[in-house]
Computed example of a mutant assay.
Amino acid sequence: MGLKTSSTYRDEILEKYKKEKGGEMSSYLIEPTRKQIKEACLWLLDKRKEKYDDRILSRFFKFKEGENKMHAIERVNGDKFKPIVNFLTGETKSTTPANLELISWLIDFRPRPLSVYLGSAYDAKEEVVQEYNHQRDQLLHFKKETELSKIPETQVIHENNKSITIISQINPSLKITTIVSL
Protein backbone atom coordinates (compact mmCIF):
# COMPACT_ATOMS: atom_id res chain seq x y z
CA MET A 1 0.00 0.00 0.00
CA GLY A 2 1.28 3.45 -0.86
CA LEU A 3 1.48 6.58 1.20
CA LYS A 4 -1.84 7.63 2.74
CA THR A 5 -2.92 11.22 2.09
CA SER A 6 -6.13 13.23 2.07
CA SER A 7 -6.35 12.48 -1.67
CA THR A 8 -6.09 8.72 -1.16
CA TYR A 9 -8.71 9.04 1.61
CA ARG A 10 -11.09 10.79 -0.81
CA ASP A 11 -10.35 8.27 -3.57
CA GLU A 12 -10.85 5.24 -1.31
CA ILE A 13 -14.15 6.60 0.00
CA LEU A 14 -15.38 7.20 -3.54
CA GLU A 15 -14.16 3.76 -4.62
CA LYS A 16 -16.04 2.09 -1.74
CA TYR A 17 -19.17 4.07 -2.61
CA LYS A 18 -18.99 3.09 -6.30
CA LYS A 19 -18.27 -0.55 -5.48
CA GLU A 20 -20.99 -0.96 -2.84
CA LYS A 21 -23.36 1.89 -3.81
CA GLY A 22 -23.62 2.81 -0.16
CA GLY A 23 -23.61 -0.72 1.24
CA GLU A 24 -26.14 -0.96 4.04
CA MET A 25 -27.47 2.44 2.96
CA SER A 26 -27.80 1.57 -0.74
CA SER A 27 -31.58 2.11 -0.70
CA TYR A 28 -30.82 5.77 0.09
CA LEU A 29 -27.56 6.20 -1.79
CA ILE A 30 -27.73 4.15 -5.01
CA GLU A 31 -29.14 7.21 -6.81
CA PRO A 32 -28.66 9.86 -4.14
CA THR A 33 -30.82 12.92 -3.78
CA ARG A 34 -30.62 15.64 -1.16
CA LYS A 35 -33.74 14.26 0.54
CA GLN A 36 -32.40 10.69 0.58
CA ILE A 37 -29.10 11.76 2.11
CA LYS A 38 -30.97 13.66 4.82
CA GLU A 39 -33.19 10.61 5.48
CA ALA A 40 -30.11 8.36 5.63
CA CYS A 41 -28.57 10.68 8.22
CA LEU A 42 -31.75 10.58 10.29
CA TRP A 43 -31.98 6.80 10.05
CA LEU A 44 -28.32 6.25 10.99
CA LEU A 45 -28.14 8.86 13.76
CA ASP A 46 -28.83 6.42 16.58
CA LYS A 47 -27.41 3.36 14.83
CA ARG A 48 -23.89 4.28 13.80
CA LYS A 49 -21.86 5.52 16.75
CA GLU A 50 -18.18 4.82 16.26
CA LYS A 51 -15.59 6.66 18.33
CA TYR A 52 -15.36 9.81 16.15
CA ASP A 53 -18.81 9.78 14.54
CA ASP A 54 -20.26 12.41 16.86
CA ARG A 55 -17.48 14.81 15.85
CA ILE A 56 -18.08 14.06 12.16
CA LEU A 57 -21.79 14.85 12.53
CA SER A 58 -21.18 17.95 14.65
CA ARG A 59 -18.70 19.27 12.10
CA PHE A 60 -21.16 18.84 9.23
CA PHE A 61 -24.42 19.84 10.98
CA LYS A 62 -22.88 22.36 13.43
CA PHE A 63 -25.04 21.18 16.33
CA LYS A 64 -25.52 23.60 19.18
CA GLU A 65 -24.75 22.50 22.75
CA GLY A 66 -27.56 20.32 24.10
CA GLU A 67 -29.55 20.54 20.86
CA ASN A 68 -31.72 17.57 19.83
CA LYS A 69 -29.72 16.21 16.92
CA MET A 70 -32.68 14.54 15.21
CA HIS A 71 -34.61 17.83 15.14
CA ALA A 72 -31.53 19.75 14.04
CA ILE A 73 -31.02 17.43 11.05
CA GLU A 74 -34.73 17.63 10.15
CA ARG A 75 -34.46 21.45 10.06
CA VAL A 76 -31.38 21.47 7.76
CA ASN A 77 -32.08 22.92 4.33
CA GLY A 78 -31.72 20.24 1.63
CA ASP A 79 -29.30 22.49 -0.28
CA LYS A 80 -26.65 21.58 2.31
CA PHE A 81 -26.59 18.07 0.80
CA LYS A 82 -26.31 19.18 -2.86
CA PRO A 83 -22.46 19.13 -2.91
CA ILE A 84 -22.56 15.56 -1.56
CA VAL A 85 -24.96 14.50 -4.31
CA ASN A 86 -22.73 16.20 -6.91
CA PHE A 87 -19.65 14.41 -5.58
CA LEU A 88 -21.27 10.96 -5.40
CA THR A 89 -22.76 11.28 -8.90
CA GLY A 90 -19.45 12.44 -10.37
CA GLU A 91 -20.57 15.98 -11.22
CA THR A 92 -17.67 17.27 -9.13
CA LYS A 93 -14.28 15.68 -8.48
CA SER A 94 -13.85 16.98 -4.93
CA THR A 95 -15.83 18.19 -1.95
CA THR A 96 -15.18 19.81 1.41
CA PRO A 97 -13.58 17.80 4.23
CA ALA A 98 -16.82 18.02 6.27
CA ASN A 99 -18.81 16.60 3.32
CA LEU A 100 -16.26 13.85 2.78
CA GLU A 101 -16.39 12.87 6.45
CA LEU A 102 -20.19 12.71 6.33
CA ILE A 103 -19.98 10.45 3.27
CA SER A 104 -17.45 8.24 5.08
CA TRP A 105 -19.95 7.95 7.94
CA LEU A 106 -22.89 7.24 5.62
CA ILE A 107 -21.12 4.40 3.79
CA ASP A 108 -19.34 3.16 6.92
CA PHE A 109 -15.87 3.69 5.46
CA ARG A 110 -13.10 2.66 7.82
CA PRO A 111 -10.86 3.95 9.18
CA ARG A 112 -12.55 7.30 9.59
CA PRO A 113 -12.13 10.27 10.01
CA LEU A 114 -9.14 11.45 7.98
CA SER A 115 -6.95 11.88 11.07
CA VAL A 116 -7.50 8.22 12.01
CA TYR A 117 -6.98 7.12 8.40
CA LEU A 118 -3.66 8.95 8.27
CA GLY A 119 -2.80 7.63 11.73
CA SER A 120 -3.36 4.06 10.58
CA ALA A 121 -0.56 4.57 8.07
CA TYR A 122 1.61 5.77 10.94
CA ASP A 123 0.60 2.72 12.98
CA ALA A 124 1.58 0.43 10.11
CA LYS A 125 4.99 2.13 9.94
CA GLU A 126 5.32 1.70 13.69
CA GLU A 127 4.61 -2.03 13.36
CA VAL A 128 7.36 -2.32 10.75
CA VAL A 129 9.77 -0.42 12.99
CA GLN A 130 8.85 -2.60 15.97
CA GLU A 131 9.36 -5.77 13.93
CA TYR A 132 12.71 -4.47 12.70
CA ASN A 133 13.78 -3.66 16.27
CA HIS A 134 12.66 -7.11 17.45
CA GLN A 135 14.63 -8.85 14.70
CA ARG A 136 17.65 -6.63 15.38
CA ASP A 137 17.51 -7.50 19.09
CA GLN A 138 17.30 -11.20 18.27
CA LEU A 139 20.30 -10.88 15.95
CA LEU A 140 22.31 -9.00 18.58
CA HIS A 141 21.43 -11.63 21.19
CA PHE A 142 22.49 -14.42 18.82
CA LYS A 143 25.73 -12.58 17.99
CA LYS A 144 26.47 -12.10 21.68
CA GLU A 145 25.86 -15.80 22.40
CA THR A 146 28.05 -16.78 19.46
CA GLU A 147 30.86 -14.50 20.64
CA LEU A 148 30.59 -15.91 24.15
CA SER A 149 30.96 -19.40 22.75
CA LYS A 150 34.26 -18.29 21.20
CA ILE A 151 35.69 -17.37 24.60
CA PRO A 152 38.51 -19.78 25.24
CA GLU A 153 38.05 -22.45 27.83
CA THR A 154 39.61 -21.08 30.99
CA GLN A 155 40.60 -22.80 34.25
CA VAL A 156 42.22 -21.68 37.45
CA ILE A 157 45.03 -24.17 38.00
CA HIS A 158 46.67 -22.64 41.05
CA GLU A 159 45.60 -20.04 43.57
CA ASN A 160 47.17 -18.67 46.76
CA ASN A 161 47.18 -15.40 48.71
CA LYS A 162 49.70 -13.79 46.36
CA SER A 163 48.77 -15.02 42.87
CA ILE A 164 46.37 -16.87 40.62
CA THR A 165 47.50 -19.01 37.72
CA ILE A 166 45.00 -19.35 34.90
CA ILE A 167 45.30 -21.49 31.81
CA SER A 168 43.27 -20.74 28.68
CA GLN A 169 43.01 -23.00 25.71
CA ILE A 170 42.41 -20.95 22.54
CA ASN A 171 42.43 -23.97 20.25
CA PRO A 172 43.65 -27.58 20.57
CA SER A 173 47.25 -26.65 19.81
CA LEU A 174 47.54 -23.37 21.74
CA LYS A 175 47.34 -22.93 25.52
CA ILE A 176 48.07 -19.70 27.32
CA THR A 177 49.04 -19.57 30.95
CA THR A 178 48.46 -16.34 32.83
CA ILE A 179 49.77 -15.56 36.28
CA VAL A 180 48.12 -12.69 38.08
CA SER A 181 49.80 -11.26 41.15
CA LEU A 182 47.59 -9.98 43.95
Rank of each mutant, 00 (worst) to 15 (best):
E20G: 13
A121D: 14
P32G: 02
P111D: 07
V128H: 06
G78N: 15
A124F: 13
D53I: 05
E50S: 11
K62S: 07
L29H: 04
P97I: 15
F63R: 11
I103G: 01
L114N: 06
R10K: 11
D108P: 11
Y52S: 10
V129Q: 08
R48V: 09
T5R: 07
G119R: 12
V129C: 07
V128M: 12
L88Y: 01
F63N: 07
S6T: 06
T92D: 05
S58I: 02
L106S: 01
K19C: 11
R34C: 10
K93C: 00
K16S: 09
E127W: 05
M25P: 03
D53K: 03
K21T: 14
Q36E: 04
E31N: 15
K49C: 10
G23N: 02
E127I: 04
K38M: 08
N99H: 12
S104D: 06
R112E: 07
F81E: 06
W105Q: 06
E39I: 15
M25E: 05
E31F: 09
D54N: 14
F109K: 10
S27A: 15
E15L: 04
N68Y: 00
V85G: 05
V116E: 01
K49F: 02
T92G: 00
K16L: 12
E31H: 13
E91R: 15
N77S: 10
D46E: 13
Y122G: 13
K62M: 12
S94C: 02
N68E: 08
A98G: 01
T95Y: 01
F60Y: 10
L102S: 04
L88W: 02
E15A: 10
F63Q: 10
I56G: 03
E91P: 02
V129R: 04
L45V: 01
L106I: 08
N68Q: 07
I73N: 00
T33K: 11
V76H: 06
M70Y: 15
R110V: 14
L14S: 02
R112S: 09
D54W: 08
S7L: 13
E24C: 13
T89M: 11
I13A: 00
N133E: 12
E39A: 05
K64I: 10
E39D: 06
S26T: 14
F109M: 10
D11F: 06
R34N: 09
E126H: 03
T95G: 05
S6Y: 12
G22K: 11
L42K: 07
A124T: 09
K82C: 00
T96P: 02
N68G: 06
E20W: 02
F87V: 04
K49R: 15
K47R: 14
L100I: 06
I37L: 08
K49L: 10
G78R: 15
G22Q: 05
K38N: 00
L57V: 03
E131F: 00
I103C: 01
K82T: 06
T8N: 08
T95C: 08
I73E: 07
E39C: 10
K125N: 12
L29I: 12
P32Q: 00
K49I: 01
D123F: 14
K38V: 07
E127R: 03
T92I: 07
L45Y: 09
M70A: 13
L29M: 02
T96N: 08
F109V: 05
Y132I: 13
F81S: 02
L45W: 09
Y132A: 14
V85K: 13
I13W: 11
R34S: 10
K18Q: 14
R59Q: 14
E131P: 03
I84R: 14
G23E: 01
S94K: 09
